[in-house]
């Protein structure tokens, strides 16, 4: 008798749950204007970038036109930077590898390393440097004046700091450069649409970038 009650009540429970699920609407209607909760996403705001003229690591001109039509992750640094920049490049290399499994979501991404050290970072130096990180990374260089329109708009600052002499020995690397380490997302219309503040972590970066792309794919007309 007790077994029967248990069986019957189990059936009732399953039936009840099934009814509840089958009666509830299969899809929640999307609210008309959901506020994005993805950290670093600027949408619905965006910042259109001005025209600029830099040179890539192959000696080719690179400007706003080369950003348009792609999703670009822009990061700033310099090759004589021994601590922070290789770390950031290494993280983005790992991000790129991690995102290989989500190609359809993050399609058409270009990784762009912008040197803030036009004096030392010639296209040849950049080309050799980037080979140690990822063949597909784009490297850009130019004079401080050529950088200004881009960096001003993106809120990127950089300044030379002389290397201290120790024991009267002069360093062959006589200056380092303090700089902003945020990574900027530029959309195919050439607008800054997201920003990743440091410290950067592979997992967190990948997740946020995927979330941004998914959100923008749903809410932006191409």
């Amino acid at each position: 008798m007790r077994t029967l009650i248990i069986i019957l009540s189990s059936i009732a429970l399953v039936l009840g749950l099934w009814l509840q699920f089958s009666l509830s609407p299969t899809r929640q209607p999307a609210p008309p204007m959901p506020a994005p909760s993805i950290e670093g996403l600027l949408w619905p705001q965006s910042r259109p970038l001005p025209a600029f003229q830099l040179t890539d690591q192959h000696g080719q001109a690179f400007g706003l036109e080369q950003l348009k039509g792609h999703w670009s992750l822009l990061f700033f640094g310099y090759t004589h930077c021994p601590d922070v920049c290789p770390m950031t490049l290494g993280i983005l290399r790992a991000v790129k590898q991690q995102l290989l499994t989500q190609q359809e979501v993050v399609a058409n991404t270009q990784y762009v390393f912008v040197s803030v050290d036009g004096e030392r970072d010639t296209p040849e130096v950049l080309a050799q440097y980037l080979r140690y990180f990822d063949q597909d990374f784009i490297g850009l260089t130019g004079s401080a004046e050529a950088l200004k329109p881009l960096t001003d708009k993106l809120g990127i600052v950089f300044m030379q700091v002389p290397v201290a002499e120790t024991d009267n020995t002069e360093s062959t690397d006589n200056y380092f450069i303090d700089h902003t380490t945020s990574i900027v997302l530029v959309d195919p219309k050439g607008r800054m649409i997201g920003i990743f503040s440091s410290p950067h972590k592979v997992e967190d970066f990948s997740q946020r970038y995927v979330a941004m792309r998914q959100f923008l794919a749903e809410h932006e007309t191409p």
């Binding site: 922070v84 700091v161 120790t166 024991d167 020995t169 380490t181 945020s182 410290p199």
Partner: peptide, 20 residues
């Protein structure tokens, strides 16, 4: 190394700085 120095990188108002 011709020279070895102790350095600290630190972030200040979004800017990564390095000091001896």
């Amino acid at each position: 190394c011709g020279m070895l120095q102790f350095h600290q990188s630190f972030e200040e108002e979004g800017i990564m700085r390095m000091r001896m």
